[in-house]
């Protein structure tokens, strides 16, 4: 999903002739994200020089970053999330990758999915880094505005993506329980299957029944070069409509097999 949203922007910013070096967190999320980014960028004409799996518990990525410049790649894709991403991006910038020229082009770093909490952890290193987000407090819809206003008044800073997710999920769960008339997880799951809603800030959102995947607009963002304050570390480059990122339930890259029987756990 990130890949489908990101690819057109990457093409626009960095062109069709790029060689990418992937560092990927060694677990399911990392693998699938890397696979989809590789597919989407290769469709643009990019080459994939290497994909290196990094241990999830890694904190110092220097030994993985060090060989990148000499690999012939001119883009580094960090398929890392959370603390992994904060550290790997910090290390990559430390190695001076952002200032380097390779193949006659400026070396670029891409983080396919990040949040402003991660941007905050990475500090100035996030400048100019392109990626995608679920939600951002700077969106202009009514749901977002209302949430930012009440959250910001209470805490003195705008809500993070994580805050919005927690809030939205709690609301959705409460609503699903009410509609199902039960706390039974299977009944709640059923109430959410194929559920479509709007107004929580993410735009129109669907929990597809076939594979329980969530589909909504995706934000393409970039680390601000000169943030006006600590709340403007990232800027929204584009909102990719849900239509562009939706895939068929049996898409070979994402299909996860049958959902199986619901087990309520009791």
């Amino acid at each position: 999903m990130s890949a489908a949203a990101l690819a057109p922007v990457l093409q626009k910013l960095y062109g069709n002739e790029r060689s990418a070096y992937h560092l990927t967190a060694d677990y399911t999320w990392g693998w699938t994200q890397q696979e989809s980014i590789q597919a989407a960028t290769e469709a643009l004409g990019w080459k994939t020089v290497n994909n290196v799996l990094t241990p999830l518990a890694q904190t110092d990525f220097s030994s993985y970053i060090a060989p990148v410049l000499n690999s012939g790649a001119d883009v580094l894709v960090l398929n890392h999330y959370g603390g992994n991403m904060v550290n790997s991006l910090t290390n990559a910038v430390q190695f001076g990758l952002r200032e380097k020229q390779v193949n006659g082009k400026n070396f670029e770093i891409v983080v396919p999915l990040y949040s402003e909490l991660m941007a905050k952890g990475a500090g100035a290193n996030i400048k100019g880094i392109v990626g995608s987000q679920n939600w951002d407090w700077k969106l202009e819809d009514e749901g977002t505005k209302a949430f930012v206003k009440s959250f910001g008044t209470k805490y003195g800073f705008p809500p993070s993506q994580a805050a919005q997710t927690c809030y939205a999920q709690a609301m959705l769960y409460a609503d699903a329980v009410e509609r199902a008339g039960s706390f039974n997880p299977c009944a709640v799951a059923e109430a959410l299957e194929g559920f479509e809603f709007d107004g929580l800030g993410n735009g129109k959102t669907l929990y597809r029944a076939d594979d329980h995947q969530c589909f909504k607009d995706v934000l393409v963002v970039r680390g601000a070069e000169n943030p006006q304050d600590e709340f403007h570390l990232v800027e929204i480059v584009e909102v990719t409509p849900v239509g562009q990122v939706t895939y068929a339930p049996d898409h070979p890259m994402f299909a996860g097999g049958e959902l199986g029987q619901c087990n309520p756990g009791a």
Binding site: N87, Q94, E99, L117, G121, G123, A124, N125
Partner: peptide, 15 residues
């Protein structure tokens, strides 16, 4: 709980 970026002096940034 978040990491706090604490950069080196500008003179020592880069490689």
């Amino acid at each position: 709980a978040n990491p706090v970026p604490t950069p080196a002096p500008t003179a020592f940034q880069g490689s």
